[in-house]
C-alpha cells in the first residue's frame, strides 16, 4: 500500500524595504551558504504587473537550486515609494545599484547574476554590467528599439479599448498618454523612445532571449529565439508561467 504524504516545500522569503524600495529576498533552500545571488530586474508599467507571477516563480525555482534571489520594485512602481509619473531611467538604474549594494553589504554576495526582463534588461545593462562581481546577465526580451515598444504599447491600448466601444483616447503614439492604466508623461515617453540596444558588453557572458531574431553579438553572448516569451501580452489572470523558458534560464545560470 502506498501511503501519501502531502509535500510541503518550505520557502523562506523576506519582504522588506531597502531604503524606500520594496523588495523580496528568497533565501536558498537547504543551503545556508548560497552558491551565488541572482538579482531580478522587472519590466515597468503593465508589463511589470503581468510578469510578476512568472518572475516570482523564477525566483522560487532559483532559491530551490541554492541561489539567494532578490526582486526589487523601482521607485514609483509596485510598493516602492513614489509615483509612476516621476519614473525615470536614471532613478531605475540607481535603484538597481541600491539593490546591488544591499546584496554585497547585507548578504556578503561576491558573485551576482542579473536577470533583466524587457526594460529591466536595458536598465540592468546600463547600471550593473561593469560592476565587480557581476558574472553574467540574462536579457529577457530587452527593448531593442524604444519607439517600436511604444508602438506595441499603443496597439495594446487600442486592442483594449476596441471591444469596450470607447472612442480611442489616442490616435497615435505621439498622443498616447496612458497605457493599460499607467500614465505616460511626455518625459517618460521621451526616455522610452530613446531606449536602444545597439551593442552588448564584450567581457560579460550574456544570454539573450527574444521572440524575434536580434542582430546583436558579443564574444560571450548567445542569443536564443523562443516562443511564449512575451508573457506580458496576456492579462495577469490568464497569463501562464512559461515553465520551459524558466528552466532554460535556470540551466544557463547553473552553467555560468
Amino acid at each position: 500500500m502506498i501511503s501519501r504524504q502531502p509535500i510541503t516545500v518550505k520557502e523562506r522569503i523576506e519582504p522588506l524595504f531597502i531604503q524606500d524600495l520594496y523588495a523580496v529576498v528568497h533565501y536558498p533552500q537547504g543551503n545556508p551558504q548560497p552558491k551565488r545571488a541572482v538579482l531580478i530586474a522587472y519590466p515597468i508599467a503593465f508589463e511589470y504587473e503581468r510578469s510578476h507571477k512568472a518572475l516570482r516563480q523564477l525566483a522560487m525555482q532559483l532559491a530551490r537550486r541554492g541561489y539567494l534571489v532578490l526582486r526589487i520594485d523601482y521607485r514609483g512602481t509596485g510598493d516602492s515609494a513614489g509615483d509612476f509619473t516621476n519614473w525615470s531611467m536614471a532613478h531605475a538604474e540607481q535603484d538597481l545599484l541600491t539593490a546591488y549594494d544591499y546584496l554585497r553589504q547585507h548578504h556578503d554576495v561576491q558573485q551576482l547574476i542579473v536577470i533583466g526582463v524587457r526594460l529591466g534588461a536595458n536598465i540592468a545593462l546600463q547600471a550593473l554590467a561593469d560592476q565587480p562581481g557581476v558574472l553574467g546577465m540574462v536579457l529577457w526580451s530587452p527593448i531593442v528599439d524604444g519607439e517600436q515598444m511604444l508602438q506595441t504599447w499603443w496597439q495594446h491600448q487600442r486592442d483594449f479599448e476596441k471591444p469596450l466601444g470607447y472612442v480611442l483616447s489616442a490616435a497615435s503614439v505621439a498622443a498616447l498618454q496612458e497605457v493599460m492604466g499607467y500614465e505616460l508623461t511626455p518625459e517618460c515617453k521621451q526616455q522610452l523612445a530613446a531606449c536602444r540596444l545597439t551593442k552588448l558588453p564584450t567581457q560579460l557572458p550574456i544570454l539573450g532571449l527574444s521572440a524575434q531574431p536580434v542582430a546583436l553579438t558579443g564574444p560571450f553572448a548567445s542569443w536564443q529565439v523562443i516562443g511564449n516569451i512575451d508573457i506580458w501580452q496576456q492579462a495577469s489572470d490568464v497569463a501562464m508561467v512559461p515553465a520551459v523558458l524558466i528552466n532554460q534560464v535556470i540551466n544557463w545560470v547553473e552553467r555560468l
Partner: peptide, 14 residues
C-alpha cells in the same frame, strides 16, 4: 483582485 498581486490593478491599492 483575482490573481493580481497586492498592489492591485495598475497599483490601485497602493
Amino acid at each position: 483582485a483575482g490573481l493580481l498581486h497586492h498592489v492591485g490593478p495598475a497599483g490601485l491599492y497602493v
